[in-house]
Structures are given as structure tokens and as C-alpha cells.
Amino acid sequence: MFEARLIQGSVLKKMIDAIKDIVTDINLDCSSTGISVQAMDSGHVCLVLIELGSDGFEPYRCDRNITLGLGLKALSVVVRCANNDDSITIKAQEGTDNINFVFESPNGEKTSQFEIKLMDIDSEHLGIPDTEYDSVVKMPSHEFQRICRDMSQLGDSIVVACTKDGIQFSASGDMGSGKINLRQSSLVDKEEDQINIELNDPVHLTFALRYLNYFTKATPLSPTVTLSLKAESPLCVTYPIGDFGSMKFFLAPKIDD
């Protein structure tokens, strides 16, 4: 038996909105420690990794490791039927080919039940190596979203450069070019407004803006985002989910031949 109740059901809605343009089907890998999802886009350019610890759910019960394959279209349709303040309970019995969703309003007056057929998803599971990054930059998530949106008006690619002076985003195209510099903040009122730059080595990488703009659909999940960069390596964009999980996007760089 698998059962997990998320008090803030809106978190699930936001997670699905954040990935539905990148992947069509996902496997929920459920174990006693929590739920994880790994999925790649069809072009094998980016990967989504969701990790949710069991402590984010009340109750959480997973008697045996179970993989639940779901089509995002059906999942998206179902979760849209939940109100933002509803709790969402996910239930699956061993040996059945359905997953159940129960939505409960805060006062308990309204409950809704939905069932989705499980799918057998044959997905390639990648081993993500532990990486020591050249630079790790934490910034407000709306700022990152704005930069990606603005830069995509100029070109298809964005160059991200970290030096001791800060982080620079630049793009160019037929129309012209643009550069945005961010420096480490000194004094800010709210921690979530802070720009924090950890630099081990200067790094300079190019990425496709199309994917970054998909990743920023996760902005409603968290006020902050972390960009982890390493020369000639995939970028890791991390959105924390409360204090019990995270959504990470990995994007392969563009490299000169």
C-alpha cells in the first residue's frame, strides 16, 4: 500500500505546471524515504529530477518500493480539479493498475476522488554524478525568470559567465545584443532577495534559452533559485520545495566543436 497526503495540494499543481512542457510521462519512484522522479525531454538535452522527502507528507506510508507511471496530461487534468487550499492524497494499492487522488477542503466539507490509469513507462535512468561546481549562484527566482525572458527576445542562446565581479548573462542576435550583470548583494532586508555568488573558478558557458524558459515555469514553487555551473558540464538549476524537497533541472551546454 502506498499513501501520501500533501497538506498544501497547490504544491503538486505547481510541480506539474513546471514540467509539463518538458516531459509527457513520469515515473513516481516511491520508497520509505519519499518520492523521486527523474525524466528527460525527448531530445535528451535536459533532465528533471524531483525529490520529495516523506516528512513533507502527513501521513506517508510506503510498505514496499513501488514505481507509478503516469501520463502528465491526465495528471494535469486531475490536479486542476483541486482547489489551491485543498490537501491532496495519493493512493495506490499493490497489484492494481490505478492511482487514486483524494482532494479535501480545509474544513473537510468537500472531498473529491479521482482515478488515473497507471502506465508502463520505459524510461532511461541516468546516474547523475556528484559534481564540484566552479560556481554556485543563488538569486531570487523571479529575477532569473525575468533575465531568461528578456534575453530570449535577443537570441536563442544565453552566455553565462561567472567571475569575481559577479555573474553576467548575455545574448545576441540579428537585432543586437544585451548584457545583464548581477553582483553579490551586500545588505538586503529579506534573505530571499539576496544574490549570493560562490566562486571556486571563473566559468563561461552557453545554453539554449528555450529550455531555461521552460525551467522558469517552476518559479511559483520557490522565491529563490540556485544555478550550479561547471566548465563544459551540464547546468543544474535548483528550486527548493518547502523544506522537504527540490526540483532540479539539468541542461547540457552548447559547446564549440
Binding site: 535528451h44 533532465l47 541516468l126 546516474g127 551540464p234 541542461l251 547540457a252
Partner: peptide
């Protein structure tokens, strides 16, 4: 311009 890399060339299949 630079060419888009495949993610699987960086991450091994588990």
C-alpha cells in the same frame, strides 16, 4: 555557433 550537447554524454545510464 556552438552545438547543443546531448545530456546522456555527461551522465551515465544507471
Amino acid at each position: 555557433g556552438p552545438a547543443q550537447r546531448d545530456l546522456t554524454s555527461f551522465f551515465k545510464t544507471a
